[in-house]
Design a protein around this nucleic acid. Structure first.
Lengths: 195, 195, 195, 195
DNA sequence: GATGAATGAGCCTTCATTCAT
DNA sequence: GATGAATGAAGGCTCATTCAT
């Protein structure tokens, strides 16, 4: 059930990630990608309809990696605050490691008014966190009057944005630990059950 | 007089905003811009070094408009919560009105790894809010153990991201008033002084 | 078969020679060349990296023609003086026929500081004449204390320059026969063995 | 009787020589030249009708310098062979010093089929050498059956070409002294009176 | 499915030249 | 004479896409 014969889909996808990370989306040509992937020019179009079709695939790939990593690291944990800590740690780690791909996703998804695709791609992450939140609410760890859907999205965004400010916008007024702690506390103050 | 410039910089800038909003950055050619601006092809390059040099200028222009609008609307207010409400209202309004430019800024600033420019452009907004926060802390409206710099950035981002999710990513699970209220409460719970 | 190349390289090269001979290098656009060659604009760049890359190819082509013609005409001759006469005749004939290309080579090779390429292109001609000179020395037709390498280059240059003065610089104080004879005698007086 | 007010003609000419020597003719814009000359864009056109009009002026300037230098150095000498030696030395020296300008003249004069201008520019040099040759013939230093006009041109060309091969085409099989000596002897064998 | 030579539309950019001041 | 902002034509080159093999 492989995507295709020789894993050419993956070859092209990873070559694209490599080259675009290095040269930026604009400066990267299909020619660069197929050269790196070791396939012919025309082969690209057997797997991707166009250059822009790459970006959702890349973004999806990145989010899948992130989510799996978070799921794995939070495997045994039940306390919401432990899970939140892992989410923060992992988001910072992944932002650092894949900052070039993240930039590419920003520039790429803005093309063609395809911003809505973000939401589709993030959907599994949102759903996962919604469930976490619900369980924590049942355990009275969190306040009860909370819009779970909205809060899940906001928390994910808040963490991601903080780490992007840190690693991409180079806004490093303080050390990374301060950054992480601020994120944690900002969220905790807002949604923990004071009981 | 009137020779130098003749407002050509502004003419080009606004023509660029118009055309790019309509067609998107990639599909817009310099030729489109100068035609709309009513200047010669070469004149463009007297004011902007390249096509990409437009984006920071556009972003800067947008933020200046936003900030001025917020400042004006909060003119007489002293309560932090009144100010926050204005910020939320204005951010949603501007996001709606200028959603195309915002998208363009996302994609444009991601090009050339010039993401750091965001921070420079936002600087005046950050500084303004930091001062607001400090005054509110002195009035005991807010908790005292707060990293003002970090919180200012986070609040601005949180509001913007929520409104972008609403208008751009079309994540309209709930009505706009719910969205706005969630933002307000999330922040309030996190930083208001419970005293 | 017939796919690869299909003689497109030659088509482009000869179209370039034709058009540039007629219009001059500066006034000739790639567009002119490909139109004449009957290939697409982009195809040009599959065979030549840039417009300037044409000139060495053209120069090489011209010298190959010249050398082959000289070799053929001197086929049966053994006397150095007969060979020299052929060289002079052929050089004058070719200069007349291809004066436009020669001018183009002068101007083209001067671009990009690629003058050294001249020497590489002339190498086969130099080597051929060096061998002729050596054999003539063994037959005692020529003086024995002669730097063969240097003399070969100088003789070739001397003939070419004279014919260029005649056809290109229009310095026709005297008839062509006088010109040719002067060249012949100048060289003969300098290197013939008086024995 | 200055060419113009502030020596702007000279300023532009020398700025042109400097910039073109450094960047090459093609890559040099009028803008570069006027910037270096410290005059306005439009001022250029008060002194030169176009960019190409520069080259004959530059070539003329170079030859005037060369000829004056040769004349000065041969001031007291009467022996033709002493004069020839000076000519060779000076030509090599000037070729080394001004190789970039010489290249520029090659490429520039080939434009617009203006090769004939070479001859006009060289005229004073030719005439000077013709007179030297005539006097030497009267002193029986040289053979008597010689086309003076043709020989003058050929000698000048032969020396120049040898030095260009040495410095520009980098054809340095032998040291410079060997090169110079070969030139001297080749000419001497050809035209000295054996008596 | 895989190839890669060929395509050709289109764009950014340069730069010689002009002209109102 | 001098200026330099403005012009706008022109062209080299790129590159996504196609299609015959």
């Amino acid at each position: 059930m492989a995507k295709s014969s020789d894993g050419k889909y993956e070859k092209i996808l990873h070559a694209a990630i490599d080259v675009i990370s290095e040269k930026g989306l604009d400066k990267t040509s299909i020619s660069d990608i197929v050269k790196k992937a070791g396939v012919a020019q025309g082969t690209f179009y057997l797997y991707f309809s166009s250059k822009n079709a790459l970006i959702p695939a890349i973004a999806d790939n990145l989010l899948t990696i992130s989510l799996e990593s978070v799921k794995e690291k939070t495997g045994g944990k039940s306390s919401f605050w432990d899970i939140l800590e892992v989410m923060i740690d992992e988001t910072f780690r992944i932002t650092k490691e894949y900052k070039d791909i993240i930039i590419l996703c920003y520039s790429g998804l803005a093309i063609d008014y395809s911003m809505e695709k973000w939401e589709a791609i993030y959907q599994p992450y949102y759903v996962w966190l919604e469930n976490i939140l619900k369980k924590a609410m049942q355990r009275n760890e969190l306040i009860s009057d909370m819009n779970v859907k909205w809060t899940a999205k906001t928390i994910i965004n808040l963490i991601e944005n903080a780490s992007e400010r840190f690693y991409i916008s180079q806004s490093q007024d303080d050390g990374i630990e301060v950054f992480k702690m601020e994120v944690f506390n900002f969220i905790k103050r807002s949604i923990s059950n004071p009981s």
